[in-house]
């Protein structure tokens, strides 16, 4: 049991409200991702849970105990930082053992725990090295190892992959997902600004914007049923196409949103038509950018290689049941 319950949480710096009325229930063993654009308060929320930041109002419960005034080290949490935050003057072994030593564990227990974690993370060969002699991915694994040995109830990740290059990021993403499979009873909270990470790793995603929770749900719920224009635009790549005004009128909506894969190129009778301005060929599929007269071009995903060239005039036919309709406030309209 290691659930996290957040009730009416506010965080203010002076007059600036960074988090507003956050309510969340995170279940035991769940992998939850906080996602949102920079400055949305996702990292602050994580730091409030960790205890590195105090809470202005509201409560945080871990395992049924209110932890507002509990020191970070006594909350049963462990954290992996964006910059790894390894102690540069300590070897890998000492980095992982530091917290255990402070708990007052006997030497043999510490050594056993560190070795076990090192084995799990393929770090055994590096235990005597200093962090500066490790690669980025290895450092990140040490940071994870340092967190694992604490046997945390809740595992916190603060943008752990953003300092890695693209290939390594994919690899570490898989490793963290595998770690989650091994630590079934550990709750994991993961902060990222990368919606791809959120989509691929999360059991549930919490989308934040301007300190307010926009929507909570599984990746597919968010993808298929966004509860606001913001979530619709934030989740999914490429971004959902939005059309408003005269383009949306036939659908009796203020704004309509349609994903690139839910559009077909139809020579004659489309809902909209326009000129191809650009096409990206990725081999397996291709993206065609069509200027229909709206402020931004419409992106259409076509399987295989695109047969459309800049300057071609094409019609666009949306799959109507995949169309998202929004009212003037950005709220979804029922079908």
């Amino acid at each position: 049991m290691s659930s996290v319950k957040i009730r009416n949480l506010y965080k203010r710096y002076g007059k600036v409200e960074v988090l507003r009325d956050v309510n969340l229930d995170i279940h035991s063993g769940e992998f939850v991702v906080f996602v949102g654009p920079s400055g949305c308060g996702k990292s602050t929320l994580l730091r409030c849970i960790s205890g590195l930041e105090t809470v202005s109002e509201g409560t945080i419960e871990i395992d049924g105990r209110v932890v507002n005034d509990v020191a970070p080290s006594k909350r049963g949490i462990a954290m992996v930082f964006q910059s790894y935050a390894l102690y540069p003057h300590m070897t890998v072994f000492k980095n992982m053992a530091y917290g255990l030593k402070l708990m007052g564990l006997p030497k043999e227990t510490i050594a056993a725990k560190v070795r076990e974690a090192a084995e799990k993370l393929q770090l055994t060969a590096y235990l005597d090295r200093l962090p500066k002699a490790l690669s980025g991915g290895q450092r990140q694994r040490v940071a994870i190892g340092r967190a694992i040995v604490r046997d945390p109830k809740v595992f916190l990740f603060d943008e752990p992959l953003s300092n890695l290059d693209a290939a390594l990021r994919v690899q570490m993403r898989i490793e963290i997902s595998q770690l989650k499979e091994q630590l079934t009873s550990t709750t994991m909270i993961y902060v990222t600004h990368d919606q791809v990470e959120a989509m691929t790793m999360a059991d549930r995603i919490v989308v934040l914007k301007d300190g307010v929770v926009q929507q909570v749900g599984s990746p597919m719920e968010l993808y298929d049923h966004p509860q606001s224009l913001f979530v619709a635009g934030f989740i999914g790549s490429p971004k959902m196409n939005f059309l408003s005004g005269q383009f949306a009128d036939p659908f009796k909506a203020h704004t309509v949103g349609i994903r690139a894969e839910h559009l077909d190129i139809a020579p004659a009778d489309g809902a909209w038509s326009g000129r191809v301005i650009y096409s990206e060929n990725l081999g397996s599929d291709s993206f065609v950018y069509v200027d229909v007269g709206a402020p931004e071009p419409i992106i259409v995903r076509q399987p295989g290689k695109a047969a459309h060239h800049a300057g071609d005039v094409v019609g666009l036919a949306p799959k109507v049941h995949e169309l998202h309709r929004f009212d003037a406030d950005g709220r979804p309209m029922m079908h």
Binding site: L52, P72, Y84, A85, Y87, P88, H89, G99, L102
Partner: peptide, 27 residues
Amino acid sequence: IPQETIEAARIDGAGEVRIFFTIMIPQ
């Protein structure tokens, strides 16, 4: 000194004085 190393030590359970002598001074 990277602030995050100090925060990591706090999570590891180190007090102010210990952080000063075992995390800050060595760095």
